[in-house]
């Protein structure tokens, strides 16, 4: 689905990483760990076409990201659900409309009707549907972002520290949502440095752990 071959990324003359390869196979569940500043967010951004590699080949659904136009990237994004570290919404629209936004921009708004209600209940935000995003708590925002990321039923879900500012109970709840999506066949990639969370996940699903440190990516890291 998403493949990085011998990828390098540098900015301002400084090389963040080089010779990095990664394959997100369909249905796989992977964690990305590593110290802060190692380039986890950058690596994720390469995976959804938000940044372009300065070396090597990034292919998204069989297309070379370097040759993709802005519309190609937009279309690829419809197959990748992204949960940012700092979730951003359209602050003037209610939560429910924000969650349905990916369907809206894809011209599939008519699909939202039934799914939206179910999804809101699933992430426990039914009561907040009419609220505006700035009124939500940190955990609610994370869950809203997750709901928005999965409403189009994307092939891949990429989450950057999705449990960054929520308590342990909420982290587990978000994790169980992601595990459930993975069981439905979605590819999941989560950047996190929460080792407890990763351990919990490994008990529920066969997750691979990647570690990005000093510009190198190790796979199959044991905890």
């Amino acid at each position: 689905m998403i493949e990085l071959q011998d990828v390098a990324y540098s900015y301002g003359g400084a090389e963040l990483f080089t010779g990095l390869s990664l394959t997100l196979a369909p249905g796989s569940f992977q964690f990305l760990t590593g110290p802060s500043g190692a380039g986890k967010t950058t690596l994720l951004k390469l995976c959804y076409g938000d940044l372009r590699a300065t070396g090597g080949v990034v292919s998204l659904f069989g297309m070379d990201a370097a040759t993709m136009g802005r519309d190609d990237v937009a279309l690829a994004r419809r197959r990748i659900g992204v949960v940012h570290q700092d979730c951003q919404f359209l602050d003037h629209l209610p939560v429910a409309e924000n969650i349905a936004l990916p369907l809206q921009v894809a011209g599939r708004a008519d699909e939202a009707a039934g799914d939206l209600d179910e999804l809101m209940a699933w992430v426990g935000l039914r009561g907040q549907a009419a609220q505006l995003p700035p009124q939500l708590s940190g955990g609610e925002r994370q869950r809203a972002a997750l709901a928005r990321a999965v409403i189009t039923s994307p092939d891949v879900i990429i989450a950057d520290e999705p449990t960054g500012n929520v308590d342990w109970e909420m982290s587990q709840r978000l994790l169980s949502l992601l595990v459930e999506l993975n069981r439905m066949g979605k590819t999941v990639l989560i950047a996190s440095h929460d080792m407890n969370l990763i351990r919990t996940a490994k008990s529920q699903v066969s997750a691979n752990v990647l570690r990005l440190k000093d510009g190198r990516l190790q796979t199959g890291v044991a905890l």
């Binding site: 938000d50 919404f89 921009v105 894809a106 189009t152």
Partner: peptide, 16 residues
């Protein structure tokens, strides 16, 4: 700018 970032993130084309 934030609206545009969010729209791009969820797969909106430039023309949209």
């Amino acid at each position: 700018a934030q609206v545009i970032r969010v729209m791009r993130l969820v797969g909106a084309r430039d023309t949209y």
